[in-house]
Design a binder for these strands. Sequence first.
DNA 1: CATCTGACGACCG
DNA 2: GCGGTCGCCAGAT
Length: 114
Amino acid sequence: MNSNLVYELVKKIPRGQAATYGRIAKALKLPGGARAAGRAMAACPSGLGIPWHRVVGAGGRLLLREPNASLQRKLLESEGLRLAEKRILEFSSHEWTPGKARHRAPAQSRQKTG
DNA sequence: CATCTGACGACCG
DNA sequence: GCGGTCGCCAGAT
């Protein structure tokens, strides 16, 4: 069950950051690449505390469609991320990579009281 | 089995 | 920066 690995991985995504489908697929060596990760996310179960909203397309693009599209935006903004109309601003500064996730963020993540 | 579709990514104009 | 297209694989009809 590869999809299960995807859920475990996205759960490791820290708050205020986001990962891409391709990155996840590549990290888990999913066959089919980003598509496989997307397929797994589409079946993303609820109640397991999976921050699915922290998963976006390459370059921080928001690919989801309503109602999730709107929901993801709301959740991401709630985490302090700055969003454009259809993408994450300064994404490369918030782009999280599996394995590189270590004790601190590469850039200033938190901004004061939220 | 054939066909269409999809929470993707990279390339081209 | 935006839209169109091809490549990739799996699921649903």
